[in-house]
Design a binder for these strands. Structure first.
Lengths: 167, 167
DNA sequence: CCAGATTACTTCGCTAGCGAATTATTCGTC
DNA sequence: GACGAATAATTCGCTAGCGAAGTAATCTGG
């Protein structure tokens, strides 16, 4: 691979200017590339889901609601944990989603502290349309890799995620 | 690999509930794992650099200042582009860094529209200490992979980043 | 040489999200 | 069965960051 990416140049600059400081090229490159890929993915999701009139964090919240053992329904706390936002942040998101008519909140009858969030018909519809667009973007990116490479990449990434989840 | 990570369970839930919708398991897994790894990395950087009394975005800005062809000096626009923040956001970051005494801004003498950002002695010191802590965290994560796997993972990630940077 | 376009940065108004405090409900124990 | 601890969500005050508008300096073409 003769071509260099941003990360190669970043690491090379480091090497030439700061040789005295301990620094593992491969580790820095890994971390940098993951960060830059995530930035790219976020921006493509943003523009993709904007086409159906929804924002990335709204899409993500609806997505989290649908992709669970009880599809379309969850507690605010569950959603907050899965999405890595605070409870306060989730209240804010749900306020917006509820006002837009994409979810509705009701108090659980057997424990009135609990809130049950449910997706509405309109919420499910817009989520499906946003997901199709987002999926197309991601497949375009993934098409750079062949099937074997995708599996291989997932295998290596999973080694890392497993460690982060169990430590 | 018998153990499942969060992403495996996420994809499996999808499979069992929404089989009718087009959906590539490997692609969804890739995107999900990259997102979750970035989330993890962000949180470890946050706690690591907090030990020297600095925030992640401050550390990143100093880091970007140091890792360039002209170490320790740059324009706000260059920094904003490298870091993926808006010009307005960079002005805000530099306000904070300048107030803390970690950078200083001067007008370029030959083009007075331009601002030259320079790191101070204190800025460079705190960056070095933050970097050591951050690096230790990242190496701990990377130690899950052996040398061959790190190279392999970087090779696959680079295929993706190259595409995102040139399309 | 000067009027309009361009460039570089900052200011302004606004939004998403955070942590801490608050409210409301349920659990646990004596 | 009542009182304190624990739990679930929301409210509050605040911060980082965005896009658009504004300011100031430089370039460019007639």
């Amino acid at each position: 691979m003769a071509e260099t990416d941003w990360t190669d140049r970043h690491v090379a600059r480091w090497r030439s200017h700061w040789v005295d400081i301990h620094f593992d090229d491969e580790v820095e490159a890994l971390v940098t590339r993951i960060g830059r890929l995530q930035r790219f993915l976020k921006s493509t999701v943003q523009t993709a889901v904007a086409e159906v009139g929804i924002q990335d964090f709204e899409y993500e919240t609806l997505h989290s609601l649908m992709i669970r053992d009880t599809p379309g329904t969850a507690s605010p706390t569950d959603l907050a944990e899965d999405l890595g936002v605070s409870g306060a942040g989730m209240t804010g998101r749900l306020d917006g989603l509820e006002k837009a008519g994409w979810v509705q909140r009701t108090h659980s009858p057997d424990d009135r502290r609990r809130v049950v969030v449910e997706i509405t018909r309109e919420g499910a519809d817009i989520w499906r349309r946003a997901m199709a667009l987002r999926g197309a973007q991601e497949e375009e990116l993934a098409s750079v890799l062949n099937d074997r490479e995708r599996v291989q990449l997932n295998r290596l990434l999973k080694k890392l995620t497993l460690w982060t989840e169990t430590r």
